[in-house]
Design a protein around this nucleic acid. Structure first.
Lengths: 225, 225
DNA sequence: CCAACTTTGTGAATTCTTGCACGAGGGCGG
DNA sequence: CCGCCCTCGTGCAAGAATTCACAAAGTTGG
């Protein structure tokens, strides 16, 4: 979906999109194993922790070389570091939260980002009641300071949690400020230049997908008259 | 991923997974068109609003029959109703929020669910400070009342926003109470019987996927020593 | 040092998804 | 009423992703 440029000789080993979305699962699983003091893990174990199957794990990991030892499995710290390297999170990446409503607040106070290689360093909003307040240790700036905050803090990723009406304008501002990746929580399509990667998280859409499966169980789908 | 039972003659028209995840996009787009008073829409227009291509739109919609008129396009209200029917949200579905932290609060106050066919009717937490408070018009109950709240309110979908350590236990309780779909925000795998559909939204994972693409631009990936 | 055992890495087969390209059908202007 | 034009619906081919299944490679116990 994020139109990869299909350069002919781009990289020795081209990692498929489907694999990329699974890397975070492996990352999570490996962190848990490492914390538990496990020094090696087999593809079978890793698969069961990540919730996928073993063949897929091996194929996925094979895209960045051979790191397993046959008969034993993978070295946990080494594989962890390898996965981190490929995810580009060896050093932490700075993020900004745009829109400090309830969702923005949740994002600002979410404890789980630091471990995973992200650091929320700034936030902005337009509401005067929110601007100036501190949420999760971050002072909420005004929307107008977005450009400055992005540049001063070396922000590369934005978490966009504004109402949908404001999303496109905010996205444009973010791109102009130099942000290169946007995680969009607003339930609307946002346009951005090709080199900016946008991912969408639409909570209502997720629920609808669940509802689809519910519907399948309830009954035969009753088509609209 | 939610292992569809591959029954031989299960249903007249089997809708592919890839299509299912796009239905919510069409739903969103059609609601916008309907609100704007558009009475018809072509696959081309719909595609551009939803952010996909026209051929895909036509193929996707064709899975539930022929509703377009050649030369004109699709009738917006009719198609909207058709999409709703297939998504199983003709009548609203009741949801419970489990874990009323910042994220749970965001979910409880999120305005966008009602339109899309969902109604959050209950919430629970374990923290005595939160139990009894009202958030977004819902009174937060105690975790121990989960079973009762689910049954009394005819809840079929749960939004799981507890810390990861508690997630599996909560999921078990939800399943025991009769919940059939879980949207899991906790960054951990949760196990559930096959007939219960679980979808995962891991915010850190989403960021990691963005970081992957960042990394690709920064430089050549530097493999771990 | 050898044999038995374990687990990786990967070709090949299969299944799923996408996208093209075009025929079929329906509206609309003349 | 006829012919042109537009857009759907879909067969087919190309491309991805998944899964299988097995040889290769390393470990461990005797």
């Amino acid at each position: 979906m994020p139109g990869r440029t299909p350069e002919p000789g781009e990289d020795p080993r081209e990692i498929p999109d489907a694999t990329i979305v699974r890397l975070p699962l492996y990352h999570r699983a490996l962190m848990a194993l490492d914390r538990a003091g496990e020094s090696t893990v087999s593809s079978e174990q890793l698969a069961s922790i990540a919730g996928v199957n073993a063949a897929k794990v091996r194929k996925d990991l094979s895209y960045f070389g051979s790191f397993g030892t046959r008969g034993v499995g993978y070295d946990v710290p080494q594989l962890l570091s390898e996965v981190r390297a490929h995810l580009g999170i060896q050093r932490s990446r700075n993020c900004i939260v745009v829109g400090a409503g309830h969702l923005g607040t949740a994002l600002l106070t979410f404890a789980g980002f630091a471990d995973r290689g992200f650091s929320v360093v700034a936030a902005v909003d337009v509401d005067p009641d929110r601007v100036g307040s501190r949420i999760g240790g971050i002072e909420v700036g005004h929307q107008d300071d977005l450009d400055r905050l992005v540049r001063e803090n070396d922000v590369v990723i934005a978490l966009l949690s504004t109402p949908p009406e404001a999303a496109q304008q905010v996205a444009d501002d973010l791109v102009a400020a130099g942000v290169r990746s946007i995680l969009n929580f607003a339930p609307t399509l946002i346009e951005a230049p090709e080199e900016v990667v946008v991912r969408n998280v639409d909570l209502a859409s997720e629920l609808e997908i669940l509802a689809f499966h519910e519907g399948r169980r309830d009954n035969e789908v009753a088509p609209a008259s």
